[in-house]
Design a protein around this nucleic acid. Structure first.
Length: 693
DNA sequence: CACACGCTAATTTTT
DNA sequence: TTAGCGTGTG
């Protein structure tokens, strides 16, 4: 908290930084590696460093580039930098570029993608669209079904692309049937995307890199604009991003990367924390600064975090040092079953907030896997406590929203045939599966885009009268709205489109349950309002920009009255990275749940441990850990053992019972009695809480 | 083309 | 257990 206040004063306040932080801020020339432990103020270091460059070093703000992984982080960083340079001369000249790797790449591609043989109007395919392509490849092609399900093929393909493997390499590398097939699938996949003038997320990075390498004359002016480059969450970069960073660094090598190998939790997605070690090799003479002073958590919480993470062998040795004193002990809650566990958690939470005068927004309940949120939600609803769920199905992933957006995508780029087939018969217009198959086959045979065939459908024998007419009407509609979107304001054209399609009614009719139909239609209204907001905040932007933003999830969020959440945060540990809360409840801590069984099977114990470390270090004041003695899974009842990570924490850090007891034959008698006593106590307290509302 | 039944799989997912 | 998907039927 004291850090925030210092920032808001506007002027640059180097005195309030600790020596390491200050060193990181003022080391501006040449490569710099900042190893920033959890809660060591790394965001502050980055933003202050940007401000320092602009205000003290007189670097023009647009010459500064900061790369983050999430739009949220980018937005936050931009806000904080703006606060620091606001009203100063340096801040008046246009800001630094703060962007995700992907948004940065997309920008480069928008400028120069024609150099790589794409047409200018390329579209970005997200995971769902990629999956649709893979699926259709498997359906059409003669692939051994035992080798790949659509899902596993999609997964393998993503992994391969993330590692930068080409179809060629896959086919020749090992020669085993799975890799051979995967190579062929990747080949077809890339052809399909190229044909549709589409790129996926990995392509954004790969093609950007190709542009930098193969067309230096064209890209250099843009790249050289950035004299100072910073990367946040550096441990999460994959190979391609690292290469891109090297290209960006150029000869100046004014690169500052900030990361923590202990918080690398996305290796399964292609992140290479080894890039941290490579940084010192690729940028020789680099300065390395460790930030180990933690400003977030109590010493007790930090001790627990340190004790656990110590068990990982391959890591850069770091020990978080706190300065807030021991604070409260950890607490261990043990439930008979999941419901019992959560009842105890919620009772504890209620009591704590009551005692401390805390706010529900100060607390978070964290868990390993998404499905665990359901039981928690039920419990909180029973108790009438407010909560917000982080993650889950996002707005832009909702079926109805995707359907509406698919129209926009086809209008912007009719070559996007994934979207085209998505909407061809929605709302219903009598172009069924058979007609669609005919269309796709015919277009392929003629080497013509589907939209052309649709436009002149009645000229081809393959389609019967009504179907052909329907196809032409559809093509005409797309053409008409192409015009309208070119000339009318985005929200107006969109509303006209929805009205003409009678989209609301189609969406409602699709659901059997009228309640859920109404809800679904409500999403479309929400989408309309989102477009209003987009048009208002970015008046110069057109359809293309809108779609890029949606694809990169960079949609500006709706104005929030209060940036501090008013409700208890429910989140997976992954999604909670970068967040902090006074009270953290880490639930479902049974072995094989966390660490997850499947992850263990794949040799991922260390990554699970890092995940646990991330979870523990979210807590500022109090950490409560919990588990259910038994759990129902797929109908059967399982006994559970405490997570192995809990056993790595000294018992003395806990108040009362600790997880180190004997659980094999049921709990020790003493533990059981304590639990009951505690339960009664909590019940009493709970009543008090309700009494006051 | 809509609905119903049966099979399968069940981690995490910044873009 | 359950949700989501694919296949088969009316």
């Amino acid at each position: 908290m004291p850090e925030r206040m210092a920032l808001n004063r506007g002027a640059l306040d180097l005195d309030s930084l600790n020596p390491e932080q200050r060193a990181a801020v003022t080391h501006t020339e040449g490569p710099l590696l900042v190893l920033a432990g959890a809660g060591s103020g790394k965001t502050r270091v980055i933003t202050t460093r940007i401000a320092y460059l602009i205000l003290h070093k007189r670097v023009p703000a647009p010459a500064v580039l900061a790369v983050t992984f999430t739009n949220k982080a980018a937005r936050e960083m931009a806000e904080r930098v703006a606060g620091q340079v606001k009203g100063t001369e340096g801040g008046a000249r246009g800001g630094p570029l703060i962007s995700t790797f992907h948004a940065f790449g997309a920008r480069l591609l928008r400028e120069h993608i024609t150099l790589l043989g794409y047409r200018p109007n390329f579209v970005i395919f997200d995971a769902q669209e990629q999956f649709a392509v893979v699926k259709s490849i498997l359906e059409d092609g003669a692939y051994d079904e035992a080798l790949f399900s659509a899902k596993s093929a999609f997964f393998a393909l993503q992994q391969a692309k993330g590692k930068g493997l080409t179809a060629q390499e896959l086919r020749t590398r090992r020669g085993d049937p799975a890799e051979l097939a995967l190579g062929a699938i990747l080949d077809e996949y890339e052809q399909a995307l190229k044909r549709m003038n589409a790129v996926d997320f990995e392509d954004i990075l790969r093609l950007s890199l190709r542009l930098c390498r193969e067309f230096p004359a064209e890209t250099r002016p843009f790249l050289e604009r950035f004299r100072y480059v910073m990367v946040d969450e550096y441990q999460d970069t994959n190979r391609c991003q690292f290469d891109l960073l090297k290209a960006l660094a150029g000869g100046r090598r004014n690169v500052c990367v900030v990361g923590d190998d202990d918080q690398s939790i996305y290796r399964w997605r292609g992140a290479e924390p080894g890039n941290i070690l490579d940084f010192e090799r690729v940028f020789p003479g680099c300065r390395t600064i460790r930030l180990e002073r933690n400003y977030r958590s109590t010493d007790t919480i930090l001790a627990a975090a340190n004790q656990v993470i110590r068990h990982n062998a391959a890591r850069k040795e770091k020990t978080l040092r706190g300065h807030r004193g021991p604070g409260r002990p950890l607490e261990w809650l043990l439930g008979e079953d999941e419901h019992d566990e959560l009842t105890k958690v919620v009772a504890h939470l209620r009591r704590t907030l009551l005692q401390d005068g805390g706010h529900p927004g100060d607390a978070a309940i964290l868990y390993r896997s998404n499905h665990q949120s359901r039981a928690i939600e039920e419990n909180l609803r029973e108790e009438g406590l407010p909560y917000t769920l982080v993650g889950g199905t996002r707005f832009f992933d909702r079926k109805e929203v995707r359907d509406a957006l698919a129209y926009l995508r086809v209008i912007a780029a009719p070559s996007d045939e994934v979207s085209l087939f998505r909407i061809l018969n929605f709302p219903r217009r009598g172009i069924g599966r058979t007609s669609q198959a005919k269309l796709s086959e015919y277009a392929a045979r003629q080497h013509r885009p589907c939209i052309d065939v649709l436009r002149e459908a009645s000229r081809f024998q393959d389609f019967t009268g009504p179907v052909a007419r329907s196809m032409e009407t559809f093509a005409a509609l797309i053409g008409r709205f192409r015009e309208r979107f070119a000339h009318e304001p985005l929200p107006a054209a969109f509303r006209a489109l929805m009205a003409e399609l009678d989209f609301h009614r189609a969406v409602e009719k699709e659901r059997a349950d009228p309640k859920s139909g109404e809800k679904a239609a409500g999403l479309i209204v929400e989408l309309e309002r989102t477009l209003d907001y987009f048009a208002r905040t970015r008046p110069e932007a057109g359809l293309k920009e809108l779609l890029d933003h949606v694809a990169l999830m960079a949609m500006p969020e709706q104005e929030e009255a209060d940036s501090r959440p008013r409700a208890i945060t429910l989140s997976t540990v992954h999604a909670a990275k970068g967040l902090e809360f006074p009270y953290v409840y880490l639930v479902g801590l049974a072995d094989e749940v966390f660490p997850h069984k499947r992850s263990l099977a794949e040799g991922g114990e260390d990554e699970e441990r890092r995940l646990f470390y991330v979870a523990v270090t979210r807590a500022q004041r109090q950490l409560v850990l919990s588990m259910a003695r038994q759990r129902r899974r797929y109908g059967e009842t399982l006994r559970q053992q405490p997570s192995r990570f809990l056993l790595e924490i000294e018992a003395r850090l806990f108040e009362g019972e600790s997880p180190q007891g004997d659980y094999v034959g049921g709990a020790p008698v003493k533990a059981r009695r304590t639990e009951e006593a505690k339960g009664r106590f909590l019940e009493r307290i709970k009543g008090m809480g309700e009494g006051r509302g």
